[in-house]
């Protein structure tokens, strides 16, 4: 057999590559979004409760 026959109707997704690291753009976006959300969750102030602290 020689030559690849590709008949898929769905176009392949975009891929990002650094050396041997390969990741699809969709997966990369998901992971980067998670990191951004994590950093925001840590840095953004949490709304303070007006209720007084109780021991």
């Amino acid at each position: 057999m020689s030559g690849q026959l590709v008949t898929s109707t769905v176009p392949a997704g975009a891929v990002v590559q650094w050396g041997f690291l390969t990741i699809t753009a969709a997966n990369l976006i998901v992971i980067l979004t998670m990191i951004v959300v994590f950093v925001l969750a840590i840095l953004l102030p949490f709304p303070a409760d007006r209720d007084e602290d109780r021991p």
């Binding site: 994590f38 925001l40 969750a41 840590i42 949490f46 303070a48 602290d53 109780r54």
Partner: peptide
Amino acid sequence: DRQPAYVASWIYVF
């Protein structure tokens, strides 16, 4: 209906 006072970060909602 109450949590320790240190539970005050968005990270707790995940």
